[in-house]
């Protein structure tokens, strides 16, 4: 009898206990589907992404969509107020979400958001960083690793060039950004565990 689903890609964290696990998932899926479609549209606009094989496009998106969403939706996490805004626009405090069962993942999301926002990236920089997050040659199941690696290197070079141009005295920003990649992997793993818990105990 799950009572809460503490993901901001949802209209509300409250779940009707009368509903079945399947219908809860169906509703949740309808909430986050538009955001996933936006990630796919974003991927299509990355120069070179459409030249990858269909299999590898799907593999990269399957593995990286959550990480892209984390970067795109850092604005939902208000670090100062310690609140999370859900899709309905309503804000919930960390304490409230914690009382609903949110744990380490929520804390880690705030940590990540705080560090990323501290870099004060422009929209263009954020967009290029997001492309680097998505095009990672070490994702599992890729059939043409070399092609993905070549595109990844091109994107990383472009990101370094843009950061160097925009922040000539702060090249450490580029290093800090690359160090966000393992942080995102860690968040992705924690999120997968939550999904597993949802599947086993909807």
């Amino acid at each position: 009898n799950r009572m809460h689903l503490v993901c901001p890609m949802n209209t509300s964290p409250y779940v009707d206990p009368q509903k079945s696990g399947h219908s809860i998932w169906e509703e949740f899926s309808m909430s986050f589907t538009p955001a996933v479609r936006e990630v796919v549209e974003f991927a299509k606009r990355i120069p070179g992404f459409k030249d990858l094989s269909q299999h590898d496009q799907v593999s990269l998106l399957k593995a990286g969509t959550f990480e892209v969403l984390v970067v795109r939706f850092t604005s939902l996490f208000n670090v100062k107020e310690r609140t999370v805004t859900f899709l309905s626009g309503r804000k919930y405090s960390v304490e409230a979400l914690r009382s609903m069962g949110a744990g380490d993942l929520l804390n880690s999301m705030f940590d990540f958001t705080e560090k990323l926002q501290a870099l004060n990236l422009s929209e263009e920089e954020m967009s290029l960083f997001t492309a680097v997050v998505l095009v990672s040659a070490d994702r599992s199941g890729l059939e043409n690793v070399n092609s993905v690696e070549a595109l990844q290197e091109t994107l990383i070079r472009a990101l370094r060039s843009l950061i160097t141009k925009n922040h000539p005295n702060e090249i450490a920003i580029f290093t800090k950004l690359l160090l966000k990649l393992p942080d995102l992997r860690s968040l992705n793993n924690m999120h997968s565990e939550q999904l597993l818990a949802f599947k086993v105990h909807p």
Partner: peptide, 27 residues
């Protein structure tokens, strides 16, 4: 649980969203 995306329907959403792109490529 190595593939949550497939198990929870994400792959289906991704494939459908990519479809236009894939059809273009096949042409």
């Amino acid at each position: 649980f190595s593939d949550p995306a497939s198990n929870l329907g994400l792959e289906d959403i991704i494939r459908k969203a990519l479809m236009g792109n894939m059809e273009e490529k096949q042409e």
